[in-house]
């Protein structure tokens, strides 16, 4: 099992560094370019949601992104100390209805769920929010 962590300030200009950090590690782990892009996008969406919703664009906070790899599993834990939320309250949009009615926003969580094999939350109100994204190497 190996672990590596990147800590960033809660600013959207840091998203590019997060994607780079994830892409390098995912490629090293053995994912194809297409899978690497999917994982980097899912992590971007998780960090964007934190900056926007948990920290409300306040740049004075930090986000930690930790990659753990074991037995073909590539897991990214993204942690923040901002506003907590109830993940079960986030609906999975019906995309046909969404598009027909020109809805806005809320696509980040849908993308994370579509792009990754597992999306899990660990919310400790007032202390820490964690989202864990996992992708398995194809056998």
């Amino acid at each position: 099992m190996s672990k590596r962590t990147l800590n960033i300030e809660s600013r959207t200009e840091r998203l590019i560094a997060v994607r780079e950090f994830i892409s390098v590690a995912a490629r090293e782990f053995g994912f194809t370019d297409e899978e690497v892009s999917k994982i980097a996008l899912a992590v971007d969406e998780a960090c964007t949601n934190i900056i926007k919703h948990a920290y409300k664009y306040d740049p004075n906070y930090s986000i930690s992104v930790t990659i753990s790899t074991h037995n073909g599993a590539f897991e990214i834990a993204i942690r923040d100390t901002g506003r907590d939320f109830r993940p079960e309250a986030i609906p999975t949009p019906d995309m046909k209805e969404y598009l027909e009615h020109y809805r806005h926003g809320g696509l980040g969580v849908y993308l994370m769920r579509s792009l990754m094999d597992k999306v899990e939350y660990n919310i400790r109100p007032g202390k820490m929010n964690e989202v864990r994204l996992t992708k398995f190497l194809p056998r």
């Binding site: 996008l41 020109y102 806005h104 696509l107 980040g108 993308l111």
Partner: peptide, 16 residues
């Protein structure tokens, strides 16, 4: 080279 949901959201905001 890259688009995330924030970019897709811009198209959704103006198409109507």
């Amino acid at each position: 080279s890259y688009i995330s949901s924030a970019g897709l959201g811009v198209f959704m905001a103006f198409i109507e």
